[in-house]
Computed example of a mutant assay.
Amino acid sequence: MKRFNSYFSPFSLGSFGGFGLLFAFLSLVSCAGDSVVPPVGGVEIRLSPSVCVSSTRSPFDASGSSALAAHIYKSLSFGDYIGGGVYHEALSFPGGSSVGFSVPQYFPSDDSPVYLCGFSPADALWTDLVYSESSRVTSVNRTLDGRTDLLVCPQQSLNKSGAMESGAFRLSFAHLLTKLKVRAVADGSAPYSPSDVWGAITGVELLSVGGAVPATTVSLDLVSGGASYGREGASPSFPVYLMAGDDSYPTEDALFSDQWVAIPSEVSDIGYSLIAPFTPTGEDDLTLKVYTEYFPQGVEAVASLDSDEFTAGRTCVVTLTFSTGDKPIIQAASGISSWQSGADTGGVLD
């Protein structure tokens, strides 16, 4: 098994053999601006994306003005994105024109295949790039923060003759996570004003998913695009972030803690979180803890989904209805819907 811990740092080399890899890494970086003489009859690998945009504040939905940025890996060996012949670059896809690597890459002249995969965002928070020789799979890990949308493009392959015939190298990105949207409304039939009984909403957090503590880590298989989820850390809950009205997101991420949100008279978006996907059972699928001005200790609200479909790439909406009476309660109703599809990119081979 080959491992490159924190692979964006050349000083964390795992079992790669130290200075040899460091020298190769620095050589690769140093030649990024150098001119490359194309091979005779060479076919360059270029990517020409369709509309691809993303935002760290609102989950990726293929509409907007920010370019999708992703780590793109090229390899000459199935599943191995660490060994020889690997080229990696963080690319931005603004849409419209084709995009190539800063150091042009070409299909092998012997018609052997090129393998490509990608994942987003293109930051340095992905760690522990690992290749397993037994399964011929490279994986990469990340901690979930509840506000960053993660997308993956599974491994694709193409050779020179296939590229000349098809004229395209398509990369298709898909969501790894589930978008949890939290809404709130005052019970209009309540005998007392919910605002007088509850006060303002000061915090929301996710306590459980399917009866279990929410996952906080993901390990991504770059060949299949599949993911496995786990948990690290001692916190018993997962963060929810503030929203600023109807499906809108603040310019800056604001943790839904120590906030001051008036209970709305009409159903309104108040918070969101990007969570590990799960398969609903229809019973106690999501448990939230809601803090208010007059209930600072928090009140649990349990929601069940009328679905048994895996929730990756889908939106779960939980509506909190603040009721009053002899025993004030928060009723949680939930639903699930499709999320905007991932991004398709097509490659134009010049």
Score class of each variant (00 low, 15 high):
residue 143 T to M: 02
residue 296 P to L: 10
residue 17 G to W: 09
residue 17 G to E: 13
residue 267 V to F: 09
residue 1 M to I: 09
residue 243 M to P: 07
residue 215 A to Y: 03
residue 67 A to Y: 09
residue 96 G to C: 10
residue 337 S to P: 01
residue 215 A to Q: 13
residue 94 P to F: 15
residue 255 L to R: 14
residue 98 S to F: 12
residue 180 L to R: 08
residue 214 P to Q: 07
residue 68 L to G: 00
residue 342 G to H: 04
residue 124 A to T: 06
residue 321 T to C: 04
residue 217 T to E: 12
residue 305 L to G: 02
residue 87 Y to F: 15
residue 12 S to N: 13
residue 314 R to N: 01
residue 326 D to Y: 03
residue 11 F to R: 13
residue 252 E to F: 13
residue 88 H to N: 06
residue 81 Y to T: 03
residue 238 F to M: 15
residue 81 Y to N: 05
residue 256 F to P: 00
residue 189 S to Y: 09
residue 203 G to Q: 06
residue 254 A to M: 14
residue 89 E to T: 08
residue 39 P to F: 01
residue 219 S to K: 15
residue 334 S to K: 03
residue 22 L to C: 04
residue 296 P to F: 11
residue 250 P to Q: 09
residue 8 F to I: 10
residue 189 S to K: 11
residue 318 V to W: 01
residue 212 A to T: 11
residue 200 A to D: 14
residue 86 V to Q: 07
residue 196 D to L: 15
residue 60 F to V: 06
residue 92 S to E: 10
residue 199 G to E: 13
residue 140 V to G: 00
residue 136 R to T: 07
residue 276 A to S: 12
residue 79 G to V: 14
residue 133 E to P: 02
residue 195 S to K: 12
residue 247 D to E: 14
residue 300 E to I: 04
residue 319 T to G: 02
residue 117 C to P: 00
residue 299 V to I: 14
residue 49 P to N: 12
residue 139 S to D: 01
residue 137 V to C: 02
residue 141 N to K: 07
residue 303 A to H: 03
residue 198 W to G: 00
residue 295 F to K: 02
residue 178 T to Y: 14
residue 272 Y to W: 12
residue 52 C to R: 12
residue 307 S to F: 09
residue 207 L to E: 14
residue 262 A to Y: 05
residue 30 S to I: 11
residue 201 I to C: 09
residue 279 T to W: 08
residue 166 S to E: 09
residue 68 L to C: 05
residue 22 L to W: 05
residue 341 S to D: 10
residue 5 N to A: 15
residue 64 G to V: 07
residue 202 T to V: 10
residue 181 K to Y: 05
residue 256 F to I: 08
residue 11 F to K: 11
residue 186 A to Q: 01
residue 140 V to P: 00
residue 296 P to E: 09
residue 305 L to V: 06
residue 256 F to R: 00
residue 167 G to Y: 10
residue 72 I to C: 04
residue 215 A to C: 14
residue 11 F to P: 00
residue 190 A to I: 00
residue 211 G to M: 11
residue 213 V to T: 15
